[in-house]
Design a protein around this nucleic acid. Structure first.
Lengths: 227, 227
DNA sequence: TTGTTAAGACTTATATAAACAATAATTATT
DNA sequence: AATAATTATTGTTTATATAAGTCTTAACAA
């Protein structure tokens, strides 16, 4: 049995809140749900949960993400810690925000019902509880910065995707229209895509070729440098 | 008296650890000290402290920074939360890291003694307790990224500084030599410096002109955009 | 046939980044 | 007084990246 250190110090509830982002082929959406318990029960909230005894904080975020998406492993990154004294109207809770990028099609629809959850357009958010709106704003700033140097967007797409689809996604991330030719030129330079001979005919008459990531080259690009 | 929420949840010690960076006109230094209490008493550690009841986490970091630097307000930014279960060998502690950029000359030397603290070259760090080395690595990655788009370096300099001095600082941040002419060209474009007619004769025969920040223009630049 | 969207080639303009070398001011030395 | 030594200061050129414009071809639906 170990000695008890830090006996004069105070302890806090610590939570994780997850900004789960998905892309519906037109705009970015975030997964919100109606809070299940008091206080502010029934209000719109990010997916979250308390850190458990003996659980590290990344694992806590993974757990919450898996619980409510049904997806085992997904792209996730810490946004930061939020520690205003009265941020939670119930008790003092320090929360650590994580964002995750998911393929909206991988979702288990039963889970959405079970959590009273809904995909909501980023540009059309309701008032969320506590500082959750701010968490989303901070996340988007971080994602924009990241997406400039890192091809993280693919986490939001299905395995096969078209170039117009990819471009629409980046336009949603940066909230600005992009030039088709230059966008493709840059993609070519990155050399991480592989063209299939299959076409998507749903969204255009001519049909756009499907592409896939070359996982090897993609992984190499992600691990280069820092950031 | 308010209702007690979250009764089934566990609480944690929450600490802040501060990566205090200073510049000695040659290289970047971080302020380390010998830990004052068990466990790992006497080992090299970052400056830190526990978050207090009723104290928000930014204020906790500010408090720690003021306590050990004697400086009232300084540039500070959150790095992130560290939550490995066994990161602290005493008890479970979740720590939030902050970095601060200070002018090494503003330091109260008595405080250094009182805290058993020492400026240590970033490129020559000892083994620190817990995950403190990793916190410093993460900080430097963040600072490098930030310094590309933001003129944050001035926080590390005295009010009056020379251009060679400023360049040496940026070379220390980026850990790479910079071209004198290109460096000055970029500075000119930013248009945030004001030349004084005073020269620093200590470090060269010819002497280098002192410059100061134009606070207005500097503030405007810092508040533009995001990041 | 016409309309629509995708794909790609080729070009031009502009902005940004990288490379590069000589001169000026001063102090110390002889 | 001349010279050597040291560091500060400055401008031009070149390459690369990004942005923007035009045009052609392809595939298909109506």
């Amino acid at each position: 049995m170990s000695a008890a250190f830090y006996q004069d110090e105070v302890k806090f509830f610590v939570a994780v809140d997850c900004i789960i982002l998905g892309f519906n082929n037109k705009e970015l959406n975030v997964l919100l749900h109606r809070r299940k318990f008091e206080p502010v029960k029934g209000e719109w909230s990010l997916m979250g949960g308390f850190v458990k005894s003996g659980e590290n904080i990344n694992d806590a975020a993974s757990r919450v993400l898996t619980e409510c998406t049904g997806i085992g492993s997904l792209f996730m990154e810490q946004v930061g810690a939020y520690g205003e004294v009265a941020r939670d109207s119930g008790e003092r809770v320090i929360s650590i925000a994580y964002y995750a990028l998911v393929n909206i099609d991988d979702f288990n629809l039963d889970l959405l019902k079970q959590y009273d959850a809904k995909w909501t357009k980023l540009n059309d958010l309701p008032d969320l509880i506590f500082d959750h709106n701010k968490m989303i704003v901070d996340t988007m700033a971080k994602l924009k910065r990241k997406a400039i140097t890192r091809p993280v967007g693919f986490n939001l797409l299905p395995e096969k995707f078209t170039l117009p689809q990819l471009q629409t996604l980046y336009e949603a991330i940066f909230q600005t229209p992009l030039d088709k030719r230059n966008f493709r030129k840059k993609l070519n330079l990155m050399d991480i895509l592989e063209k299939l001979d299959e076409k998507d005919k749903k969204s255009s008459k001519r049909g756009a070729f499907y592409y896939m990531l070359n996982k090897e080259k993609y992984g190499k690009l992600l691990s280069d440098n820092v950031g």
